[in-house]
Amino acid sequence: STVKVRLGHLEVTLHNVSEEDVRELRELWKNGADEEDLRRWLEEWKK
Results as ranks from 00 to 15, higher is better:
27 E>A: 10
37 D>T: 15
25 L>P: 00
27 E>Y: 06
43 E>W: 07
14 L>M: 05
42 L>V: 15
39 R>L: 12
32 G>Y: 05
47 K>M: 12
42 L>P: 00
7 L>A: 02
24 E>L: 10
44 E>M: 07
43 E>H: 08
47 K>V: 10
42 L>N: 00
41 W>A: 02
30 K>L: 13
13 T>E: 08
45 W>V: 07
41 W>K: 02
6 R>N: 13
31 N>Q: 11
6 R>G: 05
16 N>K: 05
8 G>C: 03
33 A>C: 04
4 K>R: 11
8 G>M: 02
7 L>K: 02
4 K>H: 13
32 G>P: 02
1 S>F: 15
40 R>W: 05
32 G>F: 05
6 R>S: 14
2 T>G: 03
13 T>L: 06
29 W>S: 08
11 E>M: 13
32 G>D: 07
3 V>T: 03
9 H>Q: 13
11 E>R: 04
12 V>S: 01
24 E>R: 12
35 E>K: 06
29 W>T: 13
42 L>R: 00
46 K>I: 15
35 E>T: 09
29 W>G: 04
44 E>F: 06
31 N>A: 09
22 V>A: 09
28 L>A: 03
44 E>I: 08
45 W>L: 08
44 E>T: 08
31 N>V: 07
23 R>T: 11
7 L>W: 09
26 R>P: 00
13 T>I: 14
20 E>A: 13
29 W>R: 05
38 L>S: 01
1 S>V: 14
38 L>G: 00
5 V>N: 01
18 S>K: 11
34 D>G: 14
20 E>P: 05
28 L>S: 02
9 H>K: 15
14 L>G: 00
14 L>R: 00
37 D>L: 13
2 T>R: 03
12 V>C: 05
2 T>K: 04
20 E>C: 07
24 E>H: 10
34 D>F: 05
11 E>L: 12
45 W>R: 06
20 E>K: 15
30 K>H: 12
46 K>D: 10
8 G>L: 03
35 E>D: 09
41 W>D: 00
27 E>Q: 08
21 D>W: 12
28 L>H: 03
26 R>N: 13
2 T>E: 06
2 T>D: 05
44 E>C: 08
24 E>V: 13
23 R>Y: 11
33 A>R: 04
17 V>D: 00
9 H>W: 09
16 N>L: 04
32 G>C: 03
5 V>H: 01
29 W>M: 15
11 E>V: 14
16 N>R: 03
39 R>W: 12
41 W>S: 01
33 A>Y: 06
21 D>K: 13
33 A>V: 09
45 W>A: 05
36 E>I: 10
44 E>H: 10
2 T>A: 04
41 W>H: 01
11 E>C: 08
6 R>I: 15
23 R>N: 12
18 S>R: 10
16 N>M: 04
3 V>Y: 03
10 L>V: 12
46 K>T: 13
45 W>Y: 13
23 R>Q: 13
27 E>C: 09
37 D>K: 13
28 L>T: 02
5 V>Q: 00
40 R>F: 06
4 K>N: 09
33 A>L: 06
31 N>E: 08
11 E>T: 14
40 R>D: 05
3 V>L: 07
35 E>R: 05
47 K>G: 12
39 R>T: 08
17 V>H: 01
44 E>Y: 07
7 L>H: 03
23 R>S: 10
31 N>G: 10
5 V>L: 15
38 L>Q: 01
7 L>D: 02
31 N>L: 09
15 H>G: 03
8 G>Y: 03
36 E>M: 11
40 R>Q: 12
24 E>C: 02
39 R>H: 08
45 W>T: 03
11 E>Y: 11
12 V>Q: 02
3 V>N: 01
9 H>G: 12
42 L>M: 09
17 V>L: 06
39 R>F: 11
13 T>D: 03
9 H>L: 12
5 V>T: 01
11 E>F: 09
9 H>V: 11
20 E>N: 14
30 K>W: 06
43 E>Y: 07
23 R>I: 11
16 N>P: 02
24 E>M: 11
3 V>S: 01
43 E>G: 03
26 R>M: 14
10 L>Q: 11
28 L>D: 00
40 R>L: 11
16 N>F: 07
14 L>D: 00
33 A>Q: 04
24 E>W: 06
34 D>V: 11
45 W>I: 06
17 V>Y: 02
2 T>Y: 07
41 W>V: 02
24 E>N: 11
20 E>T: 11
31 N>D: 08
17 V>F: 03
13 T>Y: 07
14 L>I: 11
18 S>W: 02
1 S>P: 04
46 K>C: 09
19 E>D: 15
37 D>R: 14
37 D>F: 07
23 R>W: 10
41 W>C: 02
22 V>G: 02
2 T>V: 11
14 L>T: 00
26 R>H: 14
5 V>F: 15
31 N>F: 05
16 N>Q: 04
4 K>C: 15
34 D>N: 13
10 L>C: 09
38 L>P: 01
27 E>R: 10
39 R>C: 05
44 E>Q: 11
45 W>H: 11
10 L>W: 14
41 W>I: 03
40 R>C: 04
20 E>L: 06
45 W>K: 07
16 N>D: 07
1 S>A: 14
47 K>D: 08
29 W>E: 14
20 E>Q: 13
22 V>L: 15
20 E>G: 09
6 R>T: 15
20 E>H: 12
40 R>I: 10
39 R>N: 11
39 R>G: 05
47 K>L: 13
26 R>T: 14
36 E>H: 12
47 K>E: 10
23 R>G: 07
29 W>A: 11
22 V>R: 06
40 R>Y: 07
21 D>N: 09
6 R>W: 15
36 E>A: 12
36 E>T: 11
17 V>N: 00
3 V>E: 02
9 H>C: 12
25 L>S: 00
3 V>R: 02
18 S>Y: 04
10 L>D: 10
35 E>Y: 11
29 W>Q: 15
14 L>C: 03
40 R>K: 13
11 E>Q: 09
22 V>S: 04
43 E>M: 10
37 D>C: 05
28 L>M: 12
26 R>A: 11
12 V>N: 01
32 G>T: 04
28 L>E: 01
5 V>Y: 02
14 L>Q: 00
21 D>T: 08
38 L>A: 02
14 L>Y: 01
34 D>H: 12
25 L>Y: 03
45 W>S: 03
37 D>M: 14
37 D>Q: 14
16 N>C: 04
13 T>A: 03
17 V>G: 04
19 E>A: 13
40 R>T: 08
45 W>Q: 05
33 A>W: 07
3 V>A: 02
6 R>H: 15
42 L>S: 01
26 R>G: 07
24 E>Q: 14
40 R>H: 11
18 S>I: 04
22 V>M: 12
40 R>N: 12
29 W>D: 04
36 E>Q: 12
20 E>S: 12
10 L>S: 06
7 L>M: 05
12 V>I: 14
46 K>Y: 15
2 T>H: 06
17 V>A: 12
30 K>P: 02
26 R>E: 15
39 R>D: 03
37 D>H: 12
14 L>H: 00
19 E>Q: 12
35 E>P: 06
27 E>N: 11
12 V>D: 01
43 E>L: 07
37 D>I: 13
42 L>W: 06
34 D>C: 03
37 D>V: 14
9 H>T: 14
14 L>P: 00
33 A>K: 04
28 L>Q: 03
44 E>V: 07
31 N>Y: 06
22 V>C: 06
46 K>W: 15
33 A>T: 05
25 L>H: 00
7 L>Q: 02
35 E>A: 08
7 L>N: 01
36 E>Y: 08
25 L>N: 00
2 T>Q: 05
28 L>V: 04
26 R>I: 14
8 G>Q: 03
35 E>V: 12
10 L>R: 05
8 G>T: 02
3 V>G: 01
30 K>N: 15
37 D>G: 09
33 A>G: 09
19 E>C: 08
35 E>I: 11
27 E>V: 06
29 W>N: 05
29 W>L: 15
20 E>V: 09
9 H>D: 15
31 N>C: 03
15 H>Q: 07
24 E>P: 02
35 E>L: 10
19 E>S: 09
7 L>I: 15
27 E>T: 08
45 W>G: 02
38 L>T: 02
42 L>F: 12
31 N>R: 11
40 R>G: 07
10 L>I: 14
30 K>A: 14
6 R>A: 13
14 L>N: 00
46 K>L: 15
9 H>N: 15
21 D>Y: 09
2 T>C: 08
23 R>E: 12
40 R>M: 10
10 L>G: 04
43 E>N: 08
41 W>R: 02
8 G>S: 03
7 L>V: 14
10 L>H: 11
42 L>H: 03
47 K>S: 13
19 E>L: 10
2 T>L: 05
33 A>E: 04
1 S>H: 14
36 E>L: 09
11 E>P: 01
25 L>I: 08
3 V>M: 05
2 T>N: 04
2 T>I: 10
3 V>P: 00
5 V>P: 00
47 K>N: 12
38 L>E: 01
27 E>S: 10
10 L>K: 07
37 D>S: 14
21 D>H: 14
30 K>C: 05
31 N>P: 03
43 E>F: 07
15 H>D: 05
12 V>T: 03
28 L>Y: 05
26 R>Y: 14
25 L>W: 02
27 E>M: 09
45 W>F: 10
43 E>V: 09
18 S>C: 02
17 V>M: 06
43 E>I: 08
7 L>P: 01
5 V>R: 00
25 L>V: 03
34 D>S: 15
8 G>A: 03
46 K>A: 13
6 R>E: 09
38 L>Y: 05
23 R>F: 10
13 T>M: 06
7 L>R: 02
18 S>M: 07
42 L>K: 01
18 S>N: 09
28 L>I: 10
20 E>M: 08
1 S>Y: 15
1 S>R: 12
6 R>Y: 14
2 T>F: 08
6 R>D: 05
22 V>W: 08
19 E>M: 10
28 L>F: 07
38 L>K: 02
43 E>S: 06
18 S>D: 07
46 K>E: 13
